[in-house]
Design a protein around this nucleic acid. Structure first.
Lengths: 207, 207
DNA sequence: CGTGCTATCTATAATGG
DNA sequence: TCCATTATAGATAGCAC
């Protein structure tokens, strides 16, 4: 019998927490199953817990694999471009630079990452050290991922970047946090670039 | 008002199915969030649907990757540290710096990301653009994620980074590929830094 | 199409075995 | 520790707009 409404806090009691976990996991899996049936979609989930040696995977490792294989690490570039612009997460200048980089590397990166992810996950059982089994393309380092928003991820391969672009990008990165004023203008002067960003975003959607 | 208990069958009516999907997806995400909070675990889910151009991913693409990384390969942090060294993904110096940064920001970042994702998901219903409803902390840019291996992700908040560390890190990043020799010295010249990159990486792991 | 409502169904907190 | 119970909190189907 429920005595109180849920307090959304970490359950400190070990056994209580575990019991709660098992109950809710069951409910969660049922919900996923229902959603799958009702709407004909293929959701999947993973849960790691200290209570089980193996991660909970739904609908199954096979189903999981199938869904994952579709997973694209990089969303539509066009959509993101607009988003970045509209919300002014980056200055126009940065957007310009980054967009160019994205255009250059998008397809290549997508394919590589998807493939690597796939291999990475399913190479597990056959090798005790999967890292060394990774495709050689993953050996080139570093990669940099720039988050421009919650879901807005850009993967930039610094190594394979054009030298000029790389320099540009890095300068952008380094100067990004220097200023809090509202001047969106970017002073670009070759090797002496100054970038100014506005950290105070004012979404213009009225809420 | 509910008129009948759910018939667990595929909903043939398109709009009804979509409406059902959205409602249940929201509920599912909430349940996951609750489970995450209550039990301190890191579940993740991905949903493909014809209703959205992008797959729904929870807690985020980043979180998704992080959980996936556990699912598959990443042994322990210590092992990875050695692995990185052994395979010369990064110079000794870079490893050192990066490890320190990870220690400094890991926990903070994780908590923020989880919270932000939760808000993002649940701000959805009250706003046509959930992105702008994100806590202001997400507005600070950029974040940099350094991939030191397939799944080895470090999230560094460049803006909030200590100035010295930021500089250090960035210099490391920029100089990472300069030398395959063992000279850890980095030429740092304040505002007049020189950037050099060596595009020909030769991982010494033999393949 | 989406949002809000609410009667009704479902999940589950606390308990007992 | 696990399973069963049960009353209450929470999720949501159908409808109005």
């Amino acid at each position: 019998m429920i005595r109180k409404k849920v307090k959304l806090l970490y359950i400190t009691n070990d056994s209580s927490r575990k019991a709660n976990y098992k109950k809710r996991k069951k409910g969660l899996m049922r919900k996923m199953s229902e959603l799958s049936t009702l709407c004909g979609i293929g959701p999947c989930a993973i849960m790691y817990s200290p209570y089980e040696s193996q991660p909970e995977v739904w609908p199954s490792r096979i189903g999981f694999q199938q869904v994952l294989s579709k997973f694209k690490m990089i969303p539509e570039m066009e959509e993101r471009k607009n988003l970045v612009n509209q919300e002014s997460f980056l200055s126009q200048r940065t957007v310009k630079v980054v967009e160019q980089l994205k255009k250059d590397y998008k397809d290549k990166r997508e394919k590589e990452m998807t493939q690597v992810m796939f291999n990475n996950i399913y190479g597990e059982s056959s090798s005790s050290s999967s890292m060394v089994a990774l495709p050689s393309m993953m050996m080139v380092m570093p990669k940099v991922i720039l988050r421009t928003g919650t879901e807005d991820i850009m993967q930039l391969d610094v190594k394979n970047m054009d030298p000029m672009k790389r320099k540009q990008w890095i300068m952008e990165l380094m100067n990004n946090n220097n200023n809090n004023n509202n001047n969106p203008q970017t002073h670009v002067g070759g090797d002496e670039m100054m970038f100014q960003f506005d950290d105070n975003i004012n979404p213009n959607n009225g809420h």
